[in-house]
């Protein structure tokens, strides 16, 4: 599967990454080589093999429905750029 310049820009946009032209070219090359490896994997015959959702052949452990966390808001908000009345403040998302 070939990747094009436009695909890189689209992926970057979806991931909210700002790439300049040099970086875009760099990633085009990197991603291209990753996809080449995927193509190799694709060539394998997986007929009759059940897909795995996880590389570990294990199942999810569950926890009891208990409240174990205490309020650590002050600690968490120490590294936030802006807070007010207990809220995290972010650039306005609606006009």
């Amino acid at each position: 599967m070939a990747i094009e310049h436009a695909d890189v820009l689209r992926a970057a946009h979806l991931a909210r990454l700002g790439l300049d032209e040099g970086e875009a070219a760099h990633y085009l090359d990197d991603l291209g080589r990753i996809l080449e490896m995927v193509d190799q994997l694709q060539a394998l015959d997986t007929e009759g093999v059940t897909p795995m959702a996880h590389p570990l052949d294990a199942t999810q452990r569950l926890r009891a429905d208990e409240v174990t966390e205490t309020d650590q808001r002050d600690d968490f908000q120490r590294c936030a750029p802006a807070v007010e009345n207990g809220l995290y403040l972010v650039p306005r998302v609606v006009e």
Binding site: D65, Q72, Q77, G86
Partner: peptide, 23 residues
């Protein structure tokens, strides 16, 4: 549920903002 789906923080309604948001 009493606690969240993937964490042990409380789901009680009407608490102080972010007082029930854990790591």
């Amino acid at each position: 549920t009493r606690s969240k789906i993937f964490s042990g923080a409380s789901t009680a309604f009407g608490a102080e903002p972010n007082s029930q948001a854990c790591a």
